[in-house]
Design a protein around this nucleic acid. Structure first.
Lengths: 240, 240
DNA sequence: CAACTTCAAATGGTTAAACCATTGACTCTA
DNA sequence: TAGAGTCAATGGTTTAACCATTTGAAGTTG
C-alpha cells in the first residue's frame, strides 16, 4: 500500500537533482559541473555534504572527478562500468561461481549470436574479419597480451552487431570479468588459443551464410569448451 | 602494458579495506561496523573523509546506515539492488528502450525457462501452483496491486528454480524495472491479465511434463504479447 | 625568438571542532 | 504499571582552515 517515506538527507536531495539533470539531458556528457565551492552555494549546503553527494554520483558512474585547476566534475556517458563492478563483486565474494557464469554465457552468447547473424551487415562481417586476422597475427607472433585483447574485442563486437544495448552491456560485463579472472589465474595455453581462434573463422562463415543456428551452436560449444578447460585448470591450481 | 597508477585518495583506501573485509567474509552480513568516530581513529583519518568512504560503500550496496543510538553501518547481504538501479538509469535516460528490454527478455526468459524445466523439483512445481492460485484469487477479487505482485513473484521464482544466481539477478533486475515502469505508465487491463495468467497454467503443465521446448516457447510468446500490448499503449498515451 | 623555469591561482582532498536530529533506553512519577 | 520526561550515543551538517595537484601565465635565459 504505502512505500516507506524517504528520510531527508541533504546529500540525497543534491544527488537526485543532479542525477535528474543528467538523465533528462539538461547536462550533457563532457560538460562540467561548477566548482565545489560554487555548487555548495547553489544548493545552500556545506562543502562536506556536497562532496558526499558528488561521491555518490561518482560511484554511480554519472560523473568523473579531475584534480587541479580546470579540474572538477565532468558528466560521463553512461557505460557498463557499474555493472562490471557489481558482477566482479559477486564473483569475488563467491556468490557467483565460474560455472554459474559459464552457464549464463552459453545461453546468452547463443542468443546474441542468433541476433547478430540476423543483423550483421557486410561492414560488420568485414570488421570481424579484420579482428580475426589481427588476432591471428598476434597468435603467430606469440603476443598473448594483444591476442587476448583482440579475442575479447571479437566477442564484444558480436554484441555490438545485435544493435541492442542490453546485450551489449551484458556481453561487456561478462567478458571484462572473464578477462580479469583470466589474467589473474590462468597461464596462456597455446593449443587452446588456436582452437578458440579457429572457432571464430567458423562463426564468420556461418554468419556469411546467414545460418543463425550454426553460428549459435558454434559459439555455445566454444564457450563450453573454454569453460571446461578453465575448470580443469583452476582445479589443478587452486588459488588458496 | 601498464595500467594507470591509482591516485591516492584516502577515502578510496578506506573503501577498499572495508570492502575486502566484507568480500573475504571477515565481516558478515548483519554485523555492524564501529561508530564513525571510532572508525575515523582506526583509519587515522578525519570524519569527513571517513564518511565519504561510507557513502561509497552504501552506494555499492555493501552497507546500510541507520540513524540514532544503536544506529551505524550494517553489513548487507549482496543483492540485485545496484543492478536494478543501473538498469533503471539506462531506461530512464533513454539509452535502453522498452523494445530493447523486451527483446532481451524474450531470449533470456526462454533460456531461463529451459533450465527451470530441467531442474524443477516437485516442491518447485507446488510453489508455482501455489503462486498461480493466489494470483487467480487476486484476479477474481480484482485486487490488481496484489495480482501484479504475485505475477512478478512467479517470474522471479522461475529464475530461482534455475539455481543459478546470475539468472536470478538478471530476472530480478528486469522484472523490478518492468514493474516500476508498469506502475508508472500503464493502467490495468483485465483481458490482458487473464491471458497472462493462463499462460502460467500452460507453463506449469509443460514443466510437469518436462517439456523444455514447450515451456520455453510459451514464455517467449507470453513476453512477446506483453510487449506488443505495452508498445501499443505507450504509443497511444505518450508520456510527454 | 624559442625553450625552459618559476610562480600564482583555481580546484579537489583533508582535517578539526562544533552543533543538530534521531533514536532507544533509562528514570521518574502518577 | 503505564506514561512522560530525560539523557546519551550515533549519524547528519556546518564552518573554516590548510594541503596537494594541475595548468597557464609570466618571467628568464640561451
Amino acid at each position: 500500500m504505502f512505500i516507506k517515506a524517504k528520510q531527508s538527507r541533504v546529500f540525497q536531495d543534491v544527488v537526485e537533482q543532479i542525477q535528474n539533470a543528467i538523465i533528462s539531458g539538461k547536462l550533457e556528457p563532457g560538460s562540467k559541473l561548477p566548482a565545489e565551492r560554487e555548487l555548495k552555494d547553489m544548493f545552500n549546503t556545506s562543502r562536506g555534504t556536497l562532496r558526499e553527494a558528488l561521491r555518490v554520483l561518482e560511484q554511480k558512474g554519472l560523473i568523473e572527478i579531475k584534480l587541479g585547476v580546470s579540474g572538477g566534475a565532468i558528466i560521463k556517458r553512461i557505460d557498463a562500468g557499474i555493472m562490471i563492478e557489481s558482477m566482479a563483486l559477486l564473483i569475488r565474494s563467491g556468490e557467483v561461481s565460474l560455472e554459474h557464469l559459464a552457464e549464463f554465457r552459453i545461453k546468452t552468447e547463443g542468443s546474441i549470436m542468433e541476433l547478430a547473424t540476423q543483423r550483421a551487415t557486410k561492414k560488420d562481417i568485414k570488421e570481424l574479419e579484420k579482428l580475426f586476422n589481427r588476432a591471428k597475427d598476434y597468435y603467430e607472433q606469440s603476443d598473448w597480451e594483444n591476442f587476448l585483447l583482440t579475442d575479447e574485442k571479437m566477442h564484444t563486437y558480436i554484441g555490438t552487431i545485435t544493435r541492442n544495448p542490453v546485450f551489449q552491456f551484458v556481453q561487456k560485463t561478462i567478458h571484462d570479468n572473464i578477462h580479469l579472472y583470466y589474467n589473474e589465474f590462468l597461464p596462456m595455453d597455446k593449443d587452446r588459443s588456436l582452437e578458440n581462434l579457429m572457432d571464430f573463422k567458423r562463426i564468420i562463415d556461418a554468419m556469411k551464410a546467414g545460418d543463425q543456428k550454426a553460428a549459435s551452436e558454434i559459439i555455445m560449444d566454444h564457450v563450453k569448451r573454454f569453460n571446461d578447460k578453465m575448470l580443469e585448470k583452476t582445479r589443478k591450481k587452486p588459488k588458496e
